[in-house]
Amino acid sequence: MKKLSLVFIGLLVFIGTYSVNAQTATPSQIRDAVQKKVQEELSSIKQDVAKKGFVGTITAKTDSTLTLNNLKNETRTILVTGETTIKLLNGSEGTPTDLKVNDFIISMGGVDSQNKMTSTRLLVTKQSETDKRDTFFGTVTKTSTTSYTITNLKNETWTIKVSSTTDITDAKLVKIKLADVKVGAKIIVVGTVSSGNNLTSSAVHVL
């Protein structure tokens, strides 16, 4: 009887062990779970330490926080700490007290998930002049040895001044000469408005 009881208990232990093993995750499941967790952590870390450069004008200032109006008129918040290197307009090193409302600055540092920057390096600088270049599309209606006349989609007539420094390319971006552009060609022009409807071109591309 004792032997029978022992066999029965042994069988129960075996079956119980098998049952537990059946519920245990396989190695591939464990690997997948670990990989997923690592990816989540990496994404979180990357987001935490994302480096950015905020550019704009200081609109408000407290002891350690600057409010910035960036070049797209969006508001940015910058935390200035004792670790922040501050360079003033004259090139000398400064302190947070040297920063004034209306200063134009470039602030570099890490941003958190709220896009709030802890500045590592902050430069007071001058705002560069507005880029007067633009891109234009039109159909060539007249050509000369120094210019094209085009009509744009608004039916406006523009004169495109072309010089020896103007890059002229065909539809495959191969360089061509001024005379290769014919009346009726559709072109894209990179240039600066000089006066009225006159453009000085730096590049002309034939579609």
Binding site: K52, V55, G109, N152, L207
Partner: peptide, 21 residues
């Protein structure tokens, strides 16, 4: 620019510095 001359533009700012950030 597409073939008909329709234009779309996007502008953005990038800060370049060799200083350790």
């Amino acid at each position: 620019f597409d073939a008909q001359g329709a234009k779309l533009t996007q502008a953005f700012v990038v800060t370049y510095s060799t200083a350790k950030i």
